[in-house]
Lab assay of single mutants.
Amino acid sequence: TSIVNVSSSLNVRSSASTSSKVIGSLSGNTKVTIVGEEGAFYKIEYKGSHGYVAKEYI
């Protein structure tokens, strides 16, 4: 489990790309479970499925 480190919110994306669809967002200090990594993104558990967040904010 890791913590989201942002002051406002962090986009959760459908794939490991800044141009991919935003499927949701997480607020600062939210706990997330990392299940993998791809480039500059972590794959996380998100709403019963998976999403991707930028590593620099975790």
Rank of each mutant, 00 (worst) to 15 (best):
S14A: 15
L26I: 14
N11V: 15
I3Q: 09
A16K: 02
G51Y: 04
V22K: 05
K43D: 01
E38W: 07
G36C: 07
N29F: 14
Y52F: 10
I23F: 03
K47P: 02
E37P: 02
T30N: 06
A40T: 08
S27G: 09
V12F: 02
K31G: 06
S15K: 10
S25R: 15
L10M: 08
K55L: 03
I23D: 01
V22C: 08
K43A: 05
Y46V: 02
N11S: 13
S20G: 13
G51L: 02
E37C: 11
S27L: 14
I23K: 03
V32S: 01
I44M: 02
V4K: 07
S27Q: 13
I3G: 10
G39M: 04
I34W: 04
L26R: 01
E45T: 08
G36W: 04
L26F: 05
K43N: 02
S9F: 13
N11Q: 15
A54T: 06
S25I: 15
G48H: 06
A40K: 09
E37S: 08
S2Y: 10
Y42L: 05
G51D: 00
S49G: 15
S49I: 12
Y42N: 01
V12W: 02
I44F: 05
L26D: 00
G51N: 01
R13M: 15
R13L: 15
G36M: 04
S20F: 06
S19L: 11
T1K: 09
S25T: 15
I44T: 00
V22P: 05
S27H: 11
V35K: 04
Y52S: 00
V12A: 01
E56I: 14
L26S: 01
Y42T: 01
E37I: 08
K21I: 10
H50F: 15
V4T: 09
S27D: 13
I44C: 02
N29D: 09
S9Q: 11
S27A: 14
A40N: 12
T33S: 07
A54N: 09
V6L: 11
G39P: 02
I3A: 09
Y57Q: 11
V6H: 10
V32Y: 06
L26T: 03
G51P: 00
S49F: 09
Y46T: 01
V22D: 02
G36Y: 03
V6P: 09
T1Y: 06
S17W: 04
F41H: 03
S15G: 12
T18S: 13
V22Y: 06
E38P: 01
S49N: 08
Y42R: 01
E38N: 06
K55N: 02
K55R: 07
S17N: 10
E56K: 14
A40S: 10
A40H: 09
K47L: 12
S2T: 14
R13P: 01
S19I: 08
Y46R: 00
S7G: 13
G24Y: 06
T33W: 10
H50P: 05
G48S: 07
V4M: 09
I3K: 08
A54V: 08
I58A: 04
V32T: 03
S8H: 15
S25L: 14
Y57C: 15
R13G: 03
S2H: 15
S8W: 13
S20M: 02
R13V: 08
S14R: 10
V12K: 00
E38T: 06
N11I: 15
V6S: 12
T33L: 10
T1G: 12
S9V: 13
S8M: 13
T30A: 12
N11A: 15
K31W: 14
N5A: 11
E37Q: 08
I44E: 00
L26A: 02
Y57S: 12
K55A: 04
G28Q: 12
T18A: 13
K47V: 05
T30F: 10
G48C: 07
T30R: 06
V6A: 09
E56P: 05
S2Q: 12
E37D: 06
V32H: 02
E38M: 07
T33M: 10
I58R: 03
N5G: 09
K43P: 01
S25C: 15
S49H: 09
I34Q: 01
T30V: 11
E56S: 09
Y46G: 00
V6Q: 08
A54C: 14
E45R: 08
I3S: 08
K31S: 11
Y46P: 00
Y46Q: 00
S2F: 13
S19R: 11
T18W: 15
A16R: 03
K21N: 10
S19C: 14
S14K: 13
Y57F: 13
S15D: 09
R13W: 15
S19A: 11
K43L: 09
G48L: 05
G36S: 07
S15R: 11
N11C: 15
N29T: 07
S25E: 10
K55D: 00
Y57R: 07
N29L: 12
N11G: 07
K21M: 12
K55Q: 05
N11M: 14
G39A: 05
F41C: 03
G36H: 04
V12R: 01
V32I: 11
S49K: 10
E37K: 05
V12P: 00
K55T: 03
G39D: 06
A54F: 12
I58F: 13
S19N: 13
V4C: 14
Y52L: 01
V35R: 04
T18R: 12
I58E: 03
E45S: 07
R13H: 15
V6I: 13
E38K: 06
I34G: 00
V12L: 03
I23A: 02
S9G: 11
E38R: 05
G28S: 13
S20K: 02
Y57D: 15
N5C: 15
A16D: 02
N5E: 09
K43Y: 05
E56T: 08
T33Q: 08
V53L: 05
K31Y: 13
V12N: 00
G48P: 02
V12Y: 01
K21D: 11
V32E: 00
S8I: 13
V32R: 01
S49T: 11
S27V: 11
K21A: 12
S27E: 13
S17I: 06
I34N: 00
S7Q: 12
S9E: 10
S17M: 07
A40C: 15
S2P: 09
Y57N: 09
V22G: 02
E45A: 09
T30H: 07
